[in-house]
Simulated scan of single mutants.
Amino acid sequence: MTPHTSASEDTAAARTVSLLMASFEGGGAERVTTQLAAAFQTRGVDTELVVVRPSGPLRTWAQDLLAPRSIVDINGRRLRTSIIGIRRYLRVRHPDVLIAGPDDVAIAALIALRLARLKSTLLVGVVHSTLSTRNRNLRSNGKLSMLADRLLLPKMDLVVAVSEGAAEDLKERIGLPTGMVVTIPNPVDVIGVRSLAERGVSHPWVDANLPIILAVGRLAPPKDFATLLRAFVLVKQAMSTTKLLILGEGPQRSDLEAMIVKHGLGDDVELLGFVDNPWAFMARSAVFVLSSEWEGFALVVAEALACGVPVVATDCPSGPREILKHGELGALVPVGDAELMASAIVRSLREPPPPADPEYLIGRYAPDSVAGRYLAAMDSLFSASATD
């Protein structure tokens, strides 16, 4: 038994675990799933990372992080049409536990398991969003997605919510029994993030030591970068030398570029797209801003704290309030309120708060600790199934 594991965790570590995700795109769910797989392997768990679409900017990073030959490609194009490929993998591998997330991936895993007729494999679905808020805001298929969640999530053996808010949403609005929902935060490699943050970054605003406001995320409606741009217009009126960098790619790029032109911000705002090392930009920013309408955990908020940068975040469902300790570690502002967001940004620029204690972040989000909580939950599942 290692110093970090209990007897129950050692029992779980003896089992085979597969983690299923959709792709190697640069989203938070993909990064944390890969980190969790690596943490299991560090603990000696026989672990494979199963990926529907094998391409994406995170693939090289994942190959460096994981054990050789532990990435399995389904070689599919879309999740729905890859269910047969997932079924084929399950029939060959027969994992003791299949961990799948977000919820659409978990539902695909459930269908594949039923088709494979593997009653011995336990399914753990991971919910990375506040589902009722997300489904309500979907422009299409919102009602269908809510119906699928309500019908199919209860058929899983366990559902992990990445924040308390997401867990309460699952119980109160999706209708999951309390006993099948457990809250386990996403892993954050604080030491690794801080090490990567020390690497050099080449950008003229960084070289000129200008005050940079940074945001990171997919250029899509849930991230509400439109409100951030409106807030930045107000920030510029108070502090004219500030600049805004947004890292990420997505379908709203052209809309955001049009907003930048409309407000005359072409010299002060840049959409940099996906970057391999966003943490180097975080460490050299004056303020990090999360403008989301909803989240499940808000991984980038925890990573910004790990980099020592002041944070301003919307008090959206769910995640930022928990990570920021109800406003103790950063400013919380209402969703969609550009004026209050701008005021909080200006305050943080003029009077930066002290950085968060990295030891607190390590204690709460270290990948090894998070993996241990998953292993303990798995062991409880097997104990319960043995008595049925």
Rank of each mutant, 00 (worst) to 15 (best):
residue 208 A to M: 10
residue 233 V to P: 02
residue 233 V to W: 00
residue 198 E to C: 08
residue 226 A to N: 02
residue 272 L to Y: 01
residue 195 S to D: 12
residue 262 K to W: 07
residue 247 L to V: 11
residue 265 L to H: 08
residue 204 P to F: 11
residue 213 I to N: 05
residue 234 L to M: 11
residue 206 V to Q: 09
residue 246 I to R: 00
residue 262 K to V: 05
residue 200 G to S: 14
residue 193 V to M: 12
residue 222 P to L: 08
residue 189 D to T: 12
residue 208 A to I: 07
residue 242 T to D: 03
residue 269 V to H: 02
residue 241 T to D: 15
residue 217 G to H: 06
residue 226 A to D: 03
residue 201 V to D: 08
residue 257 E to K: 12
residue 268 D to R: 11
residue 219 L to M: 08
residue 268 D to M: 07
residue 271 L to S: 00
residue 234 L to V: 07
residue 235 V to R: 04
residue 230 R to A: 02
residue 234 L to E: 06
residue 271 L to V: 00
residue 194 R to V: 06
residue 263 H to A: 14
residue 263 H to M: 09
residue 187 P to T: 11
residue 246 I to E: 00
residue 235 V to S: 04
residue 255 D to H: 11
residue 227 T to H: 02
residue 262 K to A: 14
residue 186 N to K: 12
residue 216 V to W: 03
residue 217 G to R: 03
residue 245 L to Y: 01
residue 226 A to W: 01
residue 232 F to N: 02
residue 225 F to C: 01
residue 228 L to V: 03
residue 225 F to P: 01
residue 247 L to I: 14
residue 240 S to T: 13
residue 249 E to R: 14
residue 219 L to R: 00
residue 194 R to T: 12
residue 269 V to W: 00
residue 193 V to T: 15
residue 193 V to H: 11
residue 198 E to F: 06
residue 213 I to Y: 04
residue 236 K to A: 03
residue 252 Q to C: 04
residue 232 F to A: 05
residue 236 K to T: 13
residue 211 P to D: 12
residue 267 D to L: 11
residue 204 P to R: 13
residue 224 D to H: 10
residue 203 H to E: 11
residue 209 N to Y: 08
residue 208 A to P: 08
residue 194 R to W: 10
residue 192 G to F: 10
residue 188 V to E: 10
residue 246 I to L: 05
residue 191 I to C: 06
residue 225 F to E: 00
residue 202 S to F: 09
residue 210 L to W: 04
residue 269 V to M: 07
residue 214 L to P: 04
residue 199 R to V: 09
residue 265 L to Q: 09
residue 252 Q to N: 07
residue 262 K to R: 15
residue 206 V to S: 09
residue 228 L to T: 01
residue 215 A to V: 07
residue 272 L to D: 01
residue 261 V to N: 13
residue 196 L to Y: 07
residue 228 L to D: 00
residue 190 V to L: 12
residue 264 G to W: 10
residue 199 R to F: 08
residue 246 I to M: 03
residue 231 A to C: 03
residue 188 V to I: 15
residue 236 K to M: 05
residue 216 V to G: 03
residue 241 T to G: 07
residue 237 Q to N: 14
residue 250 G to R: 06
residue 216 V to M: 10
residue 247 L to E: 02
residue 247 L to C: 07
residue 201 V to N: 08
residue 266 G to S: 13
residue 234 L to H: 08
residue 198 E to R: 15
residue 189 D to K: 12
residue 265 L to M: 14
residue 249 E to A: 15
residue 249 E to P: 05
residue 197 A to V: 10
residue 239 M to T: 04
residue 251 P to F: 05
residue 247 L to Y: 04
residue 230 R to W: 01
residue 205 W to L: 12
residue 215 A to C: 09
